[in-house]
Design a protein around this nucleic acid. Sequence first.
DNA 1: GTCTATAAAAGGATAGAC
DNA 2: GTCTATCCTTTTATAGAC
Lengths: 226, 226
Amino acid sequence: MKFDAVELRLMPAKSDDRRRNDPDRTKADILDVATQEFAANGLAGGRVDAIADRTRTSKRMIYYYFGSKKGLYLAVLERSYRQIRTLEADLELAHLPADEALRVLISTTFDHDEAHPEFVRLVSIENIHSAAHMRRSDVIRDLNVSIIETIAQIIDRGVTEGIFRRHPDAIDVHMMISAFCFFRVSNRHTFGTIFRRDLSAPDLKSRHRGMIADAVLSYLMSAERG
Amino acid sequence: MKFDAVELRLMPAKSDDRRRNDPDRTKADILDVATQEFAANGLAGGRVDAIADRTRTSKRMIYYYFGSKKGLYLAVLERSYRQIRTLEADLELAHLPADEALRVLISTTFDHDEAHPEFVRLVSIENIHSAAHMRRSDVIRDLNVSIIETIAQIIDRGVTEGIFRRHPDAIDVHMMISAFCFFRVSNRHTFGTIFRRDLSAPDLKSRHRGMIADAVLSYLMSAERG
DNA sequence: GTCTATAAAAGGATAGAC
DNA sequence: GTCTATCCTTTTATAGAC
């Protein structure tokens, strides 16, 4: 009799229940799955049912926490942007020579897009929607974009040191870098199909990482129109 | 009596009926509207009803001619690709100096993407679907991509003439050019929102057109790793 | 080849118990 | 906070007359 009672108390039922009732954990779980679903199929193509099925929780909870499909999509988008902005803000490049600093920054952007194709896809999807959701999101619109400040300082420094002969707009330079890194991932499938080339292959990856850095640097180092 | 008969023959009723029953005209009409609809809302987001409503014909005819929503989408995609390939194939650059030829080619790509945002959007959408439809389409996969041959010849010529000091892969150069031109249009909305900049403004357009050309040329003209 | 009406299915959202 | 069952709108697709 005593023995039976002890065994009952040792069962892990209660601890499991607490875990299941943790709101932050539930929300994060939903966001993880939703990120994959929307990145894979778009906003219209993504299925709330499919998300619920792959979650520890139910569809009801998605509506409970996020209100609607679009509310969930926006939460996914906000979280993804917060992550890349944090990464950019953590760069410490002030102690490096201008050209070295720029190479590190380009590699960081390049590697981020390579490592996070789901972010690249979400941004593509949001552009299909003309950035309508992002525009309404204070969170995203007001995320500090320190990368422009970083690039501006590098360009200034390079010009002062005499390494760079051009002095272009920092946002333009950021766009040039972003375009190349982003396109490689965003257009991987159509470009790869048409030109019969696997853009995810490791040798192409390292060649392209060097290529974009060389292109940006030779642009900055060359004389106007040459 | 004679007079009346002549007047009857001149009435345009019959000719109108023929026009309405012209299959090619009907198909082209459907494709025009479908291109706009899919480019605006994606494959899942695009509505067959919405297409039918903006067409001279009915929904029944869309299924009659194209079989399914996906069949229509694929037809739209095939037609868009055929158009840009035709444009590229018409370029006559052999008589120009290598650097001039490259500038013309870059401007052509740049202006094409600017003038055809619906094409850019369709390609973005097809990438969200991992190019699944394009892959199955013999028409698109086998469209001759003469642009690579064109770029390869320009690079060879530039190196022979001593203008270029690098000799990169032609597909890589094409990717570098495409990436910049494409990104400016495909990511116009998110990039514009975040950096508070209107990428469709005329002054930015011409500045960027020159910038991408300068970047590619200074890359080709610079020494390895410099 | 073309139209109207309708079937059939999918998918977003919610009711109500616990 | 969480679950099951279900409503109801939207949307793809087709039947059948002309």
